[in-house]
Every structure is written in C-alpha cells, then in structure tokens.
Design a protein around this nucleic acid. Structure first.
Lengths: 105, 105
DNA sequence: TCGCGTATTCGTCAATTCACGAACACTTGG
DNA sequence: CCAAGTGTTCGTGAATTGACGAATACGCGA
C-alpha cells in the first residue's frame, strides 16, 4: 500500500496552512481532531460525501496540520500536528483553534 | 463617489479572514500595511498589475483586515484593523504577522 | 476466499479565484 | 479646461476549488 505523504516541519508553508484552515469544513475537522486526537475519518459529523471528506483530509494532511496513520481495518487515525506547526509558526494554530471553540460556545 | 465597504467588527468571519491571509501576495500586503500604516496602494513593491492589486486590496478590506480611507489625489490610505480583529479573534492576526516577519528575516 | 467496512481515486461539473488590459472615475496642478 | 496621477470596474481567460457518484484498493472476520 501507498504511504501517505506528510510534509516535514522545515517544509511547512504558512500560506498553505492558512489556506487549509480557511475552509469552514476543514476548520471544523481540525478542531475536532485536536479535541479528540486519534479519531478515524468516518467518525466525524458531516453531511458531505465520503469522497469530499477524503479530499478535505488530504488537504489537511498535505498542509502539515494533521498526521494520518493507518488504523485497524484500513481506517485512518487522525492526529494533530499542532505542536510541530507551532514550532515553526508560534501561536498561529493555537490562536485559531481557541477562536473557533470560543465563538462556538 | 462610492463609499468603500467595511464590515463591522461583529460581522467579522474567521474563515473569511483566514482566506484573505492565505494568499502570499495579500499576506505580504497585510504585513506592509501593519509595518507602515497609511501607505497608499501605489507604494507597495510588486510585479502585479494595478487591477490585480486593486482586487487584492478589496479582499483585504472586505474581510475586515484593512481600512481604506480616501487620501489626496484619489489615493487610498491603507490602515490596519488589527486591533479590531483581535478583539474578535484574539492573537490570530498578531501571531500570523509575527510568523511572517520572523521567517522573512 | 468471500464479503463487509473503510477510505482513496477518478471523472465530471459548476463555481470561484487570480491574472491581465482597456476603459472609466476622480482629484489635483497647471 | 486639460492633462497627469491614482484606483476601480469590466470583460476575458486559465487554473483551481469543492462537490458528487462510481469504481477501486485494502484489511479483516467469518
């Protein structure tokens, strides 16, 4: 099987990361992954089709915001790479996540 | 003449703001505006055409990141609305701006 | 090995984005 | 009033995005 691509920390690009966060669906996914690390793709609440959701996860993964690891039964476990991203761009992701959870409550 | 539209603070939308920041050109403009408040549109270093640049300023303005004010000779003075944006989404913009200036030096 | 569950890939499609030049609008100095 | 300077608007075109269903790939339990 094909290994999933993940950018190295030194290759992270701020514009790419912001673009990944700029979509409401992806921002929601990112918050959920950070709230409940290790969730599989099928466990997210959404109205979107599987293929659309898969594409969004791909954007998050290739931007470096999320690490996807193979789980049981061909599932993907989604882990936040927030700490790694913060090492390159301090406070950016944490501030975004806080703003979302804050305005949502 | 037509007054330029500016969103109210309570109408700011995080996804819209992140989208505005996600373009490298606009991010650069935003940094420049914050570094040197009051610059006119024509004083930014760029290879882009006037119409393209004008469109980018419009995105920044309509997202709420920048206030454009009429200056002498039909020019536009560009002011950051960073403080206002921060009141809705604390630390988001400041963290982004710091990351850009930091990685650029 | 067969079938089920999970997720990706592919092809398509409508909508949006980003770029440009030409034309227009507005202010100001001569 | 005219010309120069500054930006916006409009029409165009190429590229990207975001959505979907159908088909495919993979792991695992029976």
């Amino acid at each position: 099987m094909k290994p999933l691509f993940h950018p190295r920390v030194e290759d992270l690009d701020l514009s790419t990361i912001l673009h990944a966060c700029a979509d409401p669906t992806r921002l929601r996914l990112l918050v959920d992954i950070n709230t409940e690390p290790g969730k599989t793709c099928g466990t997210f609440e959404t109205e979107l089709s599987k293929s659309t959701l898969s594409a969004h996860f791909k954007v998050l993964r290739e931007s470096g915001l999320v690490r996807q690891e193979l789980g049981p039964g061909n599932s993907r476990l989604n882990w936040p790479r927030t700490a790694e991203v913060q090492s390159r761009f301090p406070d950016v992701i944490s501030a975004i996540l806080k703003s979302v959870t804050r305005s949502h409550s």
